[in-house]
């Protein structure tokens, strides 16, 4: 291959990406024996519920914010959206506890843990703007209560919880985008580093 081709950014990027994360490592056939435990299922359960949240959110966005108040199908999709969020947080917290007690940040996995922490915080903000976008008495109560707390931090100058349009945009555009990107980085980092070995594994296998 000529040197000009080797210096192309597409060539360099491909070589770097496939060198660090070859397909067999990105989508492996087998996992170390200790991964055969239910606790490892909760990361994927979190992804699965997140997919349901996004899909039901797409349907809600298609029909607009009046639909779920007046149609029984709309109400059903709204409930699907809420309950997927409940399962998302339920499994995310169990995933977090699991990773905390196995100190899964060991062996250069700091960024895996930290992207998890930030995804958790972003998910809370996303859920909050969702509660603020319900357009019912509940959202009215939540936002009028929250405004004082948020104004007291100074963030109220650019994040106005009483501005329904702004809350809806944060909820359906900005925050989901950040959450999806962070989740993708989180999972790629897990694949890059491999699953953290148990505490008593002195052999260093699978490190």
């Amino acid at each position: 291959m000529s040197t000009t081709i080797e210096r192309q950014w597409t060539t360099r990027l491909r070589k770097r990406a496939t060198g660090k994360l070859p397909p067999e490592k990105a989508l492996p056939d087998t996992q170390p024996a200790y991964v055969a435990s239910w606790i490892y299922v909760f990361g994927v359960a979190t992804i699965a519920s997140f997919v349901m949240v996004i899909l039901s959110g797409f349907i809600l966005a298609l029909r607009g914010p009046q639909w779920w108040h007046v149609s029984s199908v709309g109400h059903f999709v709204n409930s699907l959206h809420l309950w997927s969020v409940e399962i998302l947080f339920f499994s995310m917290v169990i995933h977090l506890w699991g990773k905390f007690f196995m100190a899964a940040w060991r062996g250069g996995r700091t960024m895996t843990w930290m992207t998890g922490v930030v995804t958790f915080l972003v998910s809370i903000a996303t859920a909050f703007t969702g509660y603020a976008s319900q357009t019912n008495f509940d959202s009215q109560w939540i936002t009028t209560q929250a405004k004082d707390g948020i104004n007291a931090t100074g963030a109220g100058s650019f994040f106005n919880v009483l501005n329904l349009g702004q809350m809806l945009m944060w909820h359906i555009v900005l925050l989901p985008l950040v959450a999806v990107l962070l989740t993708a980085v989180h999972v790629v980092l897990v694949r890059l580093k491999g699953v953290v070995p148990p505490f008593d594994d002195k052999t260093g296998a699978a490190k």
Binding site: A33, A36, S37, F90, I94
Partner: peptide, 24 residues
């Protein structure tokens, strides 16, 4: 809900994972 999360967490730790024995 918090109690249920603790229960599911404990179950995840102690309920045997299907196929684990044969894998070993």
């Amino acid at each position: 809900v918090i109690l249920l999360m603790v229960l599911v967490f404990l179950a995840a730790l102690f309920v045997p994972f299907p196929g684990r024995a044969s894998r070993k």
